[in-house]
Design a protein around this nucleic acid. Structure first.
Length: 520
RNA sequence: GGCGGCGUAGCUCAGCUGGUCAGAGCGAGGGUCUCAUAAUCCCUAGGUCACUGGUUCGACUCCAGUCGCCGCCA
């Protein structure tokens, strides 16, 4: 059986889920559903990163122990993703004992192999970044991101002998052109590797400075530093379901993330895997930022659109549609309310929603919902069918290439044709004369087939909508992507479809604002 | 400073290896239908394809330089 393993980064619990997190989840969820529809067994891992200076500091600010703080914050993510309906197979908390044990086991293994050494280190440390800064990075003596001076710290730490594995990592990415997507991020990684500027990786913090972390198994005075802890969640999430699950899924791993954490995933992680004697992940899938004006949507900056509020107000599929349709995966995209409303109204309300409404309405009015025989074969009929046959071919292809915006565009081209078909064939005019009713029935049957095919192709993009459509059609989802349209085979003789329902109400911001404050 | 990338109609963007490539969607204006969520459908955009040179019979598409954005690295 084919398998597909997809991960998101584990999210740092210093803030609530934001749009960036949500986008990553939507992509991972969409990929998992797509591969499942293609017949693969899938596994999705996400989670929360709960260790580190910043978390300890935030907990202290709230006057609570770090674990209490983490126990309060982590469920915000878990609950959010559940509310959004994402198909999470394992939610990994880095404070989970199962995860901690694996991190320790891995640390010990690498240590035993001689790839971890002890050394003195001095540098300028920014607690905001949780890393050492170079002199050159400073702006006016301050950290450029956090606008405050770093501390001069000199201490002894453990280092992972990453340099030993960099040539092999470089070879791997040279040999596997698709291992990092999109291409230009692979080029950046290769440039980084070729520059020779990458050294060994500091993987510890003395407990005297930071207690909130996983203890090094070979030195109890130290805890593990972030990446050696966090990245291993991709493995621990699988191992929590057993060694067989790990062995089955790991080689198919697809790590989805935003571009800011490319380096740890493309350099540190493969080095770690090589040191551990594990196969490398299959691919890194790197997406851009949602920008609003100039600033990026980051967890440290304030201008955050609250995805859960949007979900509550407009529904998860409306949010999913906008995110997937508006961003070309890999590039930045801008998020603003006008674009959101325009897109949703034009495509979802006026396009898909209205088509469903008008077709089911006529089916109800002229035939009491009873589906009529599919007969006749006019040029318009063939045209319509060709449009959907093309969508059935293109949508999965574009999805496979992570061009979600193109996939949806392709599907909407077909939907536009369906709306045009209604006008061109004018069943509502034909229906005035009883002798035309067989033709009217055939036209509507074809349109119902359009909705069926659309529901199939939306099943990984807009799962809720897809389900609603199948329910309106009175049919079950086939659960997979069929190889051909199969029009004429879905509705048994005498089958009744349900009366129309509003899938996506038009958004009228001005009226909402005038009438009442929008719910938040 | 080194190396990507980008700059195409009001907006968001397509345009692969040069010759129906000057396009799509949205917005805006006009019209039609009435099944439908005042939705659908049809018509309407003359934008020097950032700028300047060059290669070529011919460049938005190749080359060089300039300006402006952005990313990565140092």
């Amino acid at each position: 059986m084919k398998r597909f393993y997809v991960t998101t980064p584990i999210y740092y619990i210093n803030a609530e889920p934001h749009l960036g997190h949500t986008y990553t989840m939507v992509v991972a969820d969409t990929l998992a559903r797509f591969h499942r529809a293609r017949g693969s067994e899938t596994f999705l891992v996400t989670g929360t990163d709960e260790h580190g200076d910043k978390i300890a500091a935030m907990a202290a600010e709230h006057g609570e122990p770090p674990k209490v703080y983490a126990d309060r914050m982590s469920p915000l993510f878990q609950q959010a993703w559940q509310d959004c309906g994402f198909v999470v197979d394992q939610f990994v908390r880095t404070t989970d004992p199962r995860h901690e044990r694996l991190v320790q086991e891995f640390l010990q293994r690498v240590y035993d192999n001689g790839d971890i050494y002890f050394s003195r280190y001095a540098g300028l440390y920014c607690t905001g970044c949780e890393r050492f800064l170079t002199e050159k990075e400073l702006v006016g003596g301050n950290c450029p991101d956090h606008k405050r001076p770093p501390e001069l710290i000199e201490e002894e730490n453990y280092f992972f002998r990453m340099t030993r594995y960099l040539p092999a990592v470089q070879q791997h990415f040279e040999a596997h052109a698709d291992a990092i997507f999109p291409d230009h991020y692979r080029n950046e990684v290769l440039a980084m590797l070729a520059s020779g500027g990458i050294g060994d990786l500091c993987i510890s913090r003395p407990k005297s400075r930071l207690e909130w972390g996983i203890e090094l198994p070979f030195d109890r005075r130290y805890v593990c530093y972030v990446w050696f802890d966090a990245l291993i969640s991709y493995v621990s999430g699988l191992k929590m379901h057993g060694e067989d699950t790990f062995r089955a899924f790991w080689p198919t791993a697809h790590h989805v993330m935003a571009k800011d954490i490319l380096k740890p995933h493309a350099i540190f992680w493969p080095s770690m895997l090589l040191a551990l004697g594990l196969p490398l992940f299959r691919r890194l899938l790197i997406h851009g930022y949602w920008v609003r004006g100039e600033a990026k949507m980051s967890k440290s900056l304030g201008n955050v659109i609250r995805p859960l509020d949007m979900k509550r107000q407009f529904g998860i599929d409306t949010l999913r549609y906008f995110l997937l349709r508006e961003m070309a995966f890999g590039q930045d995209a801008s998020f603003n309310e006008d674009a959101f409303v325009a897109r949703v109204n034009a495509d979802l309300a006026n396009g898909l929603g209205n088509l469903v409404s008008r077709v089911l309405s006529m089916q109800q009015r002229y035939f009491a919902g009873c589906v009529q025989p599919l007969e006749g074969d006019t040029p318009a009929d063939r045209d319509l069918q060709a449009a959907f046959a093309q969508a059935l071919e293109e949508v999965p292809q574009w999805t496979e290439q992570l061009a979600f915006h193109r996939a949806l565009e392709a599907l909407w081209r077909a939907l536009d044709r369906a709306n045009k078909y209604v006008v061109d064939t004018a069943p509502f005019t034909l229906a005035r004369n009883a002798q035309n009713l067989p033709r009217v029935g055939a036209i509507l049957h074809r349109l119902l087939e359009c909705l069926y095919t659309t529901a199939v192709l939306l099943s990984w993009f807009l799962p809720e909508t897809s389900q609603k459509m199948f329910s309106l059609l009175g049919l079950d989802s086939p659960g997979h992507v069929p190889s051909n349209l199969g029009w004429g085979e879905h509705f048994p003789p005498g089958h009744r479809v349900r009366p129309p329902a509003t899938l996506f109400p038009r958004i009228d911001l001005h009226r909402d604002e005038a009438a009442a404050p929008r719910p938040r």
